[in-house]
Amino acid sequence: MMAEQISIFIENKEGRLAEVTAILRDAQVNIRALSLADTTDFGVLRLIVNDNDKATAALKKEGFTVGKTQVLAVEVTDEPGGLNKVLDPLCEQDVNVEYMYAFANPQCKNAIMIFRFDDIDKAKEILAQKDIKVIDGKELSGL
């Protein structure tokens, strides 16, 4: 059920992001989705890719610090209120979103939201009860 996201520490320096994506390109890794959180000194790049092991190995070889985080990839219907259908039940039961980012599912019109929750197991349970589709890691890589 869970999906694995990789994260990379990068300093706020010119061209640093391009270096990361070039390493992934050269390793033939495809990026599904990404988000960049930053402060004045540094940023954390969060990535969903088609091959975590290959990406991690290539980045580590170039001296980057790579972390792995369990996240949930949730399908959100492409209509007004689609996101609230996901968020409302979680909110009611005090599950908090630490961060999230989205990309379009290439196979249909829906969006896929990547969520990091403070309580991932509880979130999973709630989403299952509400019949909301959670895409597992394997499926995500294969998209």
Partner: peptide, 18 residues
């Protein structure tokens, strides 16, 4: 320098460390 053990993808955590 950050390393594998100290790194997390949580910005707030990293800033708190600083």
């Amino acid at each position: 320098e950050i390393d594998e053990t100290s790194f997390s993808d949580d910005i707030k955590g990293l800033q708190a460390m600083e």
